[in-house]
Design a protein around this nucleic acid. Structure first.
Length: 498
RNA sequence: GGCCCCGUCGUCUAGCCAGGUCUAGGACACGUGCCUUUCACGCACGCAACACGGGUUCGAAUCCCGUCGGGGUCACCA
């Protein structure tokens, strides 16, 4: 039988790192075995359904290149793929379980249950709902008055259930720990532990790979599979993702705090910043999984080939932005120039310094800048921070660089001389530029650094950047001279102010 | 609180199932140095962990028990 996995998000908002990783493991496992990966939207609780959220999740998958064989937008033979549209299937399964006696009508009221629970708490024993025995007369009465009831699963007493989890290993759980649980509300809507089983069964899921918060939930689900007379899928429970530098789980409540610390926990935040899908995929796969003692960089095909659930860690992993950043830089290094250009373009456009469609001249300028930037460009959005001054007419000075390189005796005079050098250099190309600046340094008996660094700040405003000659060349003679003039003026003004 | 899962450098991890080859390996981050016009890259070196306590054994990171810590679950949430 072909392997079938599924990712079943509740459409409440953006996907965070942990959720994406769970989906990825499902996808990798399915692809590794040449099986199918399905997406199902778990929206049994209507309040959880946010239309936009489904699109956001799918956009994230598309961006990562995680294709789904069945699910929203693509359909499939065992749909619908929204739980909210599968009520007839839950109804049928519930009817079957009522008929087989596994499920009964529970007429209890909120007040009764609250009282039972309070009593249990008071006696310091765990509260477990158990079937209440009613007389025939009482039942008749309930029915005649149209009293509402929930459908509950009657949990067998005194059994020990065993789950052979692919990641956690064998786990035992006594049915004494499980209260009779509701599978259908009085209004007919199904609950997760029931709907999930009906769907996994109906969709012929062979491997349920999901977050470990579901580990305890698995046992009631096991009972439902059994009652339905269905074969069990295999289960693999993946540990949670902890916040950076900690073993504590990432919490939605701490979102504001993460933001303040510059910690990004949502996939879309990385998409927006210009990370590479391949890098993200690589990072996510290594978070809680390893192939051997040394390999860090994996291509997509390698991941599919080498992934296995056996090598997923059973303990939590914490999100490590530094590692992600490093993997990203590794992938960026090997990205072809034209793809870098394509990736940077949206950021330049948003910044308003180039306009699409770009003409040939602008395009080659972008190429030149990216080439000059080299490995300094780690994520696409860096093009703005690192390369803005190549495109923009105006130049702003980095205060530290200004102080360190320009506010020194003799600098204005040197800049005037260098301006003359630039005015006369012919041809205005990389090699000649380098030669004349070196010659100038020798003739004026200045250390090369004392020439290059002020000139860099005078023409780019920044203390760091690509090699100076690259900068001078890309900027062009006129712009360089104009900026030197601007710098001299700025320095003169500062001088006056004292 | 009951039950369940988890615990190797700051972080990702190898080693654990089949105890000795582990004075615990790799990577990120960090520190130092080299290269160098800055930064980045690259190279070299360094810092740094078996949560704790018992037991089993000739021998334990590896097996067992306990403690502590983290997480989950006990809903007519998913």
């Amino acid at each position: 039988m072909s392997v079938r996995t599924r990712f079943a998000p509740s459409p409440t908002g953006y996907l965070h790192i942990g959720g994406v990783r769970t989906a990825l493991f499902n996808w990798l496992f399915a692809r590794h075995h040449g099986g199918q990966f399905l997406v199902r939207i778990d929206d049994t609780d209507q309040q959880r359904h946010v239309d936009e959220a489904v699109t956001k999740i799918l956009d994230g998958f598309r961006w990562l290149g995680m294709d789904w064989d069945e699910g929203p937008e693509v359909g499939g033979p065992v749909g619908p793929y929204f739980q909210s549209q599968r009520h007839h299937l839950y109804r049928a399964a519930a009817d079957q379980l009522v008929a087989s006696g596994h499920v009964y009508r529970d007429y209890s009221t909120d007040q009764e249950r609250a009282a039972d629970k309070a009593l249990a708490d008071k006696e310091k024993r765990p509260y477990r709902f158990r079937r209440k025995e009613y007389t025939a007369a009482e039942l008749a009465q309930f029915e005649s008055e149209g009293r509402r009831y929930a459908l509950r699963f009657q949990v067998p007493a005194g059994r020990v259930l065993v789950l052979n989890d692919l990641i956690k290993g064998p786990v035992e759980f006594s049915t004494e720990e499980i209260g009779d649980f509701v599978i259908v509300r009085p209004d007919g809507s199904p609950l997760y532990n029931f709907a999930s089983v009906v769907d996994d069964l109906g969709m012929q899921i062979t491997h349920v790979v999901r977050a470990e918060e579901h580990l305890s939930n698995t046992f009631p689900q096991l009972l439902v599979f059994e009652a339905l007379g269905a074969p069990l899928p295999a289960f693999a429970h993946i540990p949670y993702v902890a916040e950076p530098g900690s073993r504590s789980k990432m919490s939605k409540r701490k979102l504001a705090e993460y933001e303040k610390q510059g910690i990004l926990v949502y996939l879309h935040q990385y998409m927006e910043r210009g990370y590479l899908p391949d890098a993200m995929l690589n990072y996510l796969s290594r978070l809680g999984w390893s192939f051997d003692a040394s390999q860090e960089i994996f291509t997509r095909p390698e991941l599919i080939e080498k992934f296995s659930l056996e090598r997923v860690n059973s303990s939590p992993a914490s999100h490590d932005q530094d590692k992600l950043f490093w993997i990203q830089s590794e992938w960026m290094k090997s990205l072809p120039l034209e793809e870098k250009v394509a990736g940077c373009l949206p950021f330049l456009e948003r910044e308003g310094v180039v306009h699409t469609p770009v003409d040939a001249e602008t395009c080659s300028r972008i190429e030149a800048v990216i080439q000059a930037l080299g490995d300094r460009l780690k994520v696409f959005s860096d093009i703005v921070k690192l390369g803005r001054y190549f495109f923009s007419e105006t130049m702003t000075y980095d205060p530290d660089a200004m102080k360190k390189r320009l506010k020194k005796d003799g600098v204005p005079q040197m800049l005037r001389e260098l301006d003359q050098v630039l005015a006369e250099v012919e041809p205005y190309d990389l090699a000649t530029l380098e030669k004349v600046v070196h010659d100038y340094s020798e003739q004026s008996s200045r250390k090369i650094g004392d020439v290059v660094n002020p000139l860099r700040v005078a023409t780019t405003g920044q203390g760091v950047g690509p090699g100076l000659y690259d900068c001078l060349y890309i900027l062009g003679r006129e712009k360089c001279r104009a900026r030197i003039a601007q710098t001299l003026e700025t320095l003169a003004q500062l001088e006056q102010k004292g």
